[in-house]
Design a binder for these strands. Structure first.
Lengths: 157, 157
DNA sequence: TGATACTTGACTGCGGCGCTCGGGATTAAT
DNA sequence: ATTAATCCCGAGCGCCGCAGTCAAGTATCA
């Protein structure tokens, strides 16, 4: 269960952009320095963000990037998907049951699917604005912290 | 955002064990064949499961493994943690703010933390029994499928 | 004209996942 | 007693892809 740097950097950079953006574009050099990310690597990442329509670019001197939409209209899910192809959990379900154990759906098929959906749903509910305001903490709240063996009470009934 | 084979195989194997277990132990050769996993690799995985107290082993001929507890007392989270050290999303928060951007918490610090908690909470609510019964689909339900800015209303009632 | 910045694509080190191998210890069947 | 299953353990290793670099080009502004 791992998160790679591309997704992480992308969200960090976008958050930085939302914060220091305001009016006019922000050059990558500034972001790279503030967030301590290699400039050349950031450039790669922003190409993808641009192609996904999440940022607009301005070339030449005093150029840079700015958000294509408001910070409350850009979700973390959108960023991660733009930068880092699949949020899927396994090749098992790309189409049909290809990667499953030969015959039918593997026993855990539905589990991974549910997990993937769950993560995506979570990230889809967090916007850049939330990140800046430290909201994600609150959003995660309704979860029981973990492993509470008592009366489990899994929703419904 | 990726899931490695160790965690995946472990859950598949444990599900298989729960299904074909019943009474007496199940040899790894059987699981390996049914789930199409390399035997030698499975052995590694089961060492960890055993040390974590999730399975009991019986050596010698007609030996094998069986669940140490009932299928409804073993969560997917427990399995994944036994096999695959951290479910953490980044080194950023191992202790304190080590990996953060020099100074203070990085902007996305809380986000990754919330994501990690969220995933763990989800996996902690799914037991082996649920997996066998195809429940994980239902468990994931209380999530609104995505980006629903309306009244959030998660879990509870 | 030069400095600043984005654009693009090719290239690469190397860490670690995913797996194999070889041996050993234990137990049950015959 | 021997053989055949099984678990137990540690070392080793190929190869892929992540993370990052490099080089060359284009646009824009002062």
């Amino acid at each position: 269960m791992e998160l790679n740097t591309k997704g992480r950097y992308a969200v960090m950079a976008m958050a930085d952009l939302a914060k220091h953006g305001g009016h006019g574009s922000v050059p990558l050099t500034a972001i790279a320095e503030r967030q301590q990310i290699s400039l050349a690597y950031l450039e790669q990442i922003f190409q993808r963000l641009r192609r996904a329509g999440l940022v607009d670019s301005a070339r030449g001197r005093s150029g840079g990037y700015q958000l294509a939409r408001g910070p409350d209209e850009i979700t973390v899910a959108a960023i991660m998907q733009a930068v880092d192809e699949p949020v899927e959990m396994t090749r098992c379900m790309l189409d049909g049951l290809a990667g499953c154990v030969g015959s039918a759906k593997c026993l855990t098929h539905d589990l991974w699917r549910a997990l993937g959906d769950h993560i995506l749903a979570f990230l889809s509910r967090v916007t850049l604005r939330d990140v800046l305001e430290g909201e994600p903490g609150r959003i995660a709240m309704p979860m029981l912290s973990a492993r509470e063996p008592g009366p489990v009470e899994v929703a419904a009934e």
